[in-house]
Design a binder for these strands. Structure first.
Length: 845
RNA sequence: GGGUCGGUGGCGGAAUGGCAGACGCAGCGGACUUAAAAUCCGCCGGGUUAAAACCCAUGUGGGUUCGAAUCCCACCCGACCUACCA
């Protein structure tokens, strides 16, 4: 075999060998600690881009590190295979989405293999496989039975380009555009299936404390769930109709001078007086149109109309006008508010614009300029801050603090006593809309029968298969709608004519439980299902689950990462899992950018193709480079010249380890200090690298490995020969082996090749089955330490001393220094700070 | 408007209260070569200087401390999230 490092040969050879040996096949080993490492599954786009390499290869290195540290590691892979691009390709190229998808899968499997990752291919799962989606359907039926899946006619967000509805989480930005195609969404009233994720609002919020996830994700989920504490209060119209409102400031109820309903509020029509009907209708019309046009940021000016109707404020019996305005949203709270312009900025603006009365119920402190007690007329904006309750009957005099909420508590207590309202919690989170009007997704296993109503498909009939012969037309409508064989069925209950649900499930449904599918993919393949089935092998599940370490991008913070948490809680309640959270630890990697520092995109022309670099430098170099760029969570630009550094490193390692011994240098045996120096450097490196790998700091770990290699290069010149005997030989052998072991997680191929060559055929066991090198902290200790001597905080001298030299001794030595004496210049010492093994600071003056 | 994270050489970054710039890229000088590439050796924040040495320097301005890139306050800039949430 060649003595040169030829990455192409080596990588191909070891990838084939490992696969043949089944090196990464999954084995459950009861009694041995397990580690379930998971990286977010790729969508079957057909091409593995640099972002995939950036997300997956460090995740693989971390999994390999765990494995070398004695864990039985599970690192599975699969494909998120349903979705719109396949269907669009089908329409454009007249090819079935399944064919398109599986072609892509095949291509991506090859690309994934080139990474040299320890994928558990024996547990691969592809979500568009009927044996996969039959379980998605099984879950749907279970959720339906539990009342967690329901169908509702309601306004929903519709993407006119994708021709489907979207979940609230998939509508982005202030212009409310589609997460996938950026098209602004419109409103439609439709019958849609939803999951009752809101049943778990509180638990989803509270359990964030029990998982080791990055704070930004927790903050985003917390905000998305959006808990507000306050009260629900019932106002009554003059006609006697109740209007429920939610408020976080029930203490300001006495300051409510009008009410505002959302234009879509069901009571609008009834409450509107004849005189106002024209104006109200126009406003409602305008609001509904506004929803259909892209709402722009400038649309901040408040618009509204008086309905002509009045309601009675339950706390003081006052008659207040009822308005409608588009700043009140039907989708939040009850779609109606009490307006307290004195203490709410939005209500204040509205009151000013339409000349409505403003009543202060919290007395602000005296104005320092005016010097008198402030009244509503003095205000240029609402007063949200502290003060004392006034004009508020039973709660007058209660202080209003910044945080305390004493006045709020007093108000709720009074409301509850008088039965005029109750303390209430409101969440921003909405139920998860899962219906999609597209064909390439998991069919929703429901049947509509004229006489029996909505009937679930019996478990034994699963899966409801997608037809192989669907016709794709550019009508924008799902082909399932006009596929007669799919659509028209017999009712499972009465055997009469019935119709299938033709909507399919949101693809986030597939990824909500894929971490469970990997444990035992396609469980009970080909067999009929039953209500009391388990969707995977129980022993395998209880061995591996839950996921110990999840890695992926933060872009899924309020989508996939929220859905899968909900799903796990629902699975727990259906008795399928016995834990509360799917992933115990999460790490968010950053985004790899183009060489210009901008997000990679075809239109910018800054897309880096990883295959090109793998061809040129090898997978090991590309892996190492991506991990060396900087902290994994930061991401950063791809620098096509910086990759040279990692490539050179591997060539240097190669020649250090295989280079002719004794060929470099003057010869002669190494000194004791040379031997000790290498030993110290080695153990310091093991300590550093172990710690860094454990916390995903690959960049500094690789830097430490480079330092060790540089040290080996230097020391090799003073070592007579790596083949010679004694201490010199021992530490050299130990060092090069440890270097390879520590390189193995990042550079699996080249480290295996060199490991085997060092073994000279005698040690055939893969480097990836070896144990991580153990550091000896004693050996890592410095024999001599440099202690800095400062005068007034500026370095003036340095002392070389043994570690743990006594503070008194250090002070003595520092004061004896000529340099220090010079800088002290005879001035008086005010203080001497001594930090052992670090510094002496002499303060003079 | 609100929230989160960040700002250090020409560049990516290291250092999280104690010698700022580890490791790498680019650059400069040298060795090898007929020459180039590759490789190897050396230099590499700015200023004063023959040198030693000293001074300045981690977005800006203050503060805490014997000592601040690191902690606190205010501001500027950037990225991401969120947005009439009652």
């Amino acid at each position: 075999m060649s003595d040169r490092y030829i990455h192409k040969d080596i990588e191909a050879k070891w990838q084939a060998t490992w696969e043949k040996q089944g090196l990464y096949d999954t084995v459950e080993m009861p009694g041995q600690p397990k580690w379930y490492a998971l990286t977010m599954l790729p969508y079957t786009s057909g091409d593995l881009h640099t972002g995939h390499w950036y997300a997956m290869t460090p995740s693989d290195a971390a999994a390999r590190f765990r494995r070398m540290n004695g864990y039985n590691v599970f690192f599975p892979i699969g494909f998120d295979a349903f979705g719109l691009p396949a269907e669009n390709a089908a329409i454009q190229n007249n090819v079935h989405p399944q064919k398109w998808t599986y072609n892509n899968v095949e291509r991506m499997q090859g690309q994934l293999r080139r990474m040299g990752a320890m994928w558990a291919w024996d547990r691969e799962a592809i979500s568009c496989d009927p044996e996969y989606y039959k379980w998605s359907q099984w879950f749907f039926l279970k959720l339906f039975e539990m009342g967690l899946a329901y169908r509702e006619y309601a306004p929903v967000d519709w993407c006119p380009k994708c021709n489907t509805t979207l979940a609230r989480e998939q509508v982005w930005g202030e212009d409310r555009h589609c997460e996938r195609c950026d098209t602004p969404v419109i409103k439609k009233d439709l019958n849609q299936w939803k999951f009752r994720i809101t049943n778990y609002s509180e638990e989803l919020l509270d359990d964030l404390d029990n998982i080791d996830w990055p704070d930004p994700v927790k903050v985003m989920q917390t905000n998305w769930i959006g808990r507000s504490d306050g009260a629900q209060v019932t106002f009554v119209t003059e006609a006697g109709d109740p209007i429920e409102i939610f408020t976080t400031r029930p203490d300001t109820l006495w300051g409510a001078t009008f009410m505002v309903l959302a234009p879509e509020h069901p009571l609008v029509n009834k409450i509107t007086s004849d005189e106002q009907r024209g104006a109200v209708d126009e406003c409602v019309e305008q609001a509904s149109r506004l929803d259909e046009i892209a709402r722009t940021a400038e649309d901040k000016e408040k618009t509204g109309v008086f309905t002509g109707g009045y309601a009675i404020n339950p706390v003081n019996g006052e008659r207040i006008p009822v308005w409608i305005a588009d700043y009140v949203l039907m989708g939040y709270g009850t779609g109606a508010i009490m307006a307290v312009p004195g203490h709410d900025e939005r209500d204040f603006e509205f009151a000013k614009k339409f000349d409505l009365p403003i009543q202060l119920v919290v007395q602000p402190p005296p104005d320092s300029d005016a010097g008198h007690v402030r009244t509503a007329d003095d205000l240029e904006s609402a007063w949200p801050g502290e003060g004392v309750m006034i004009n508020s009957g039973p709660i007058n005099g209660t202080p209003v603090g910044k945080e305390e909420g004493e006045s709020v508590k007093a108000a709720i207590a009074w409301l509850e006593e008088k039965e005029k309202g109750v303390g209430a919690v409101n969440y921003r989170l909405r139920d998860w809309l899962i219906s999609r009007q597209r064909m390439w997704g998991t069919p929703i296993p429901m049947i509509f029968c004229a006489s029996c109503g909505t009937v679930p498909v019996p478990y034994a009939d699963l899966p409801v298969r997608l037809p192989d012969d669907a016709q794709f037309k550019p009508t924008g409508e799902s082909p399932l709608n006009y596929h007669e064989g799919f659509r028209y069925v017999k009712c499972p209950q009465c055997q009469g004519n019935a119709e299938r649900e033709t909507d399919t499930m949101d693809t986030f449904m597939c990824s909500s439980w894929y971490q469970y599918a990997y444990v035992d993919p396609y469980h009970k393949a080909g067999a009929p299902l039953a209500v009391d089935d388990m969707p995977w092998d129980g022993e395998r599940g209880s061995y591996w689950l839950p996921v110990d370490q999840y890695t992926g991008g933060i872009e899924h913070a309020t989508m996939h990462l929220l859905y899968t948490r909900f799903f796990t809680k629902a699975l727990r309640d259906m008795g399928v899992v016995d834990f509360d959270e799917p992933m115990l630890r999460l790490f968010n990697q950053g985004i790899i950018l183009g060489p210009d520092g901008e997000r990679m995109s075809k239109s910018r022309g800054n897309v880096v193709n990883p295959d090109e670099y793998v061809d040129k430098y090898g997978a090991d170099t590309v892996r190492g480079y991506l991990m060396f760029i900087g902290p994994w969570e930061h991401g950063g630009p791809w620098d096509p010249s910086a990759i040279e550094g990692v490539s050179r490193f591997l060539y240097r390692v190669w020649s250090v380890i295989l280079g002719e011994p004794g060929s470099n240098g003057a010869g002669g045996p190494a000194t004791e200090e040379d031997v000790r120096g290498l030993e110290r450097k080695l153990h310091q490196t093991i300590l550093k690298v172990s710690e860094d790998f454990g916390s995903f700091r690959f960049n500094t770990a690789i830097a430490a490995l480079m330092e060790l290699n540089n040290y080996l290069i230097r020391v090799k010149q003073t070592f007579a020969s790596s083949q010679s005997v004694g201490a010199e030989h021992g530490i050299w052998q130990e060092s090069v082996r440890a270097l390879l072991l520590m390189m193995a997680p990042v550079f699996p191929h080249v480290s295996e090749e060199l490991w085997q060559r060092l073994a000279d055929g005698s040690e055939a066991r893969s480097i990836h089955l070896q144990s991580w090198p153990q550091a000896d902290p004693q050996k890592a200790k410095e024999d001599e330490i440099t202690v800095v001597v400062q005068v007034n905080g500026r370095v003036r001298d340095k002392l070389n001393v043994a570690p743990n030299t006594a503070k008194e001794k250090l002070e003595q030595m520092a004061l004896a220094s000529d340099n220090v004496q010079k800088w002290m210049n005879g001035k008086q010492i005010r203080k001497v700070v001594v930090v052992a093994d670090k510094l002496v600071n002499i303060v003079i003056g």
